[in-house]
Nucleic acid binder design. Structure first.
Length: 233
RNA sequence: UUCUUCUUUUGAG
């Protein structure tokens, strides 16, 4: 977790040398660390070796490497690894799909992202709030504000309940389209839905007001943060 | 007593 993989690997090898049997959790932890640092080949090497020590990679194991690849922007490699996982009997789960969808969205390959969502339905994996948030964020970053709102409606129709992160993305999308007043309305709407705007909600709005040069509006929002915390405490 | 996925804000050019 601190990113000190050299140390972690040293301890791991030391344990192996002393005849200790690693658990799959130990493997997954190491694979996560390696993958997050972009050390994909060493990570895959562990994936290949672990069976020898009685630990068979599970879908979590593959998800960690898939995530590492996606975060590096190597989404097609990630997609290939999904097929590798399937070949080893590990079926993609909601995490696999959400990770890949985020990878495509971060590359603004939105058609690919949407295609993955369709494929999820086909495989009986139901898109969840994270799936929709991920796609909404991709559409937002691509400045497709109309499609953001359409997708938001679609998720509600599919009985997927938006959370604070959903609204934060919508707020950013509206701010990006310079529709700050609609964003303020949305702040009210989220409260009506029982959701409490958080520090990201306000930060997003304040940035939006600043970008259109409305410093007074930004400052008023800033002062509202204090009020909200007074209510909470 | 969590091994995996989603949101805002930064600098330089």
């Amino acid at each position: 977790q601190d990113g000190d993989l050299d140390h972690a690997m040293a301890v791991f090898k030391d344990g192996l040398g002393k005849g200790l049997k690693p658990s799959i959790i130990v493997y997954n932890t190491l694979i996560k660390g390696l993958s997050q640092q972009g050390l994909i080949l060493p990570a895959l090497q562990l994936v290949n070796e672990m069976a020898e020590n009685g630990c068979h990679p599970n879908i979590w194991t593959y998800n960690l490497v898939i995530n590492g690849l996606c975060k590096m922007g190597c989404v097609s490699d990630a997609h290939n690894l999904v097929h590798g996982a399937i070949a080893k009997g590990c079926l993609p789960d909601i995490f696999t799909f959400n990770t890949l969808i985020d990878g495509y969205c971060k590359q603004l390959k939105l058609e690919n992202a949407i295609e993955m969502i369709n494929r999820m339905w086909g495989q009986g994996v139901i898109p969840d709030v994270i799936t929709y948030n991920t796609l909404l964020n991709g559409l937002c970053k691509a400045a497709k504000s109309e499609e953001v709102m359409e997708t938001f409606k679609a998720m509600v129709e599919k009985e997927c309940t938006p959370n604070v992160i959903t609204y934060n993305i919508l707020l950013e999308s509206l701010c990006k389209a310079k529709k700050v007043n609609e964003a303020l309305d949305l702040l009210v709407e989220m409260k009506n839905k029982g959701l409490t705007p958080d520090v990201v909600s306000f930060g997003t709005l304040i940035t939006g007001f600043c970008k259109i040069g409305d410093i007074d509006g930004a400052y008023q929002l800033f002062r509202r943060i204090d009020k909200q915390y007074e209510v909470c405490q």
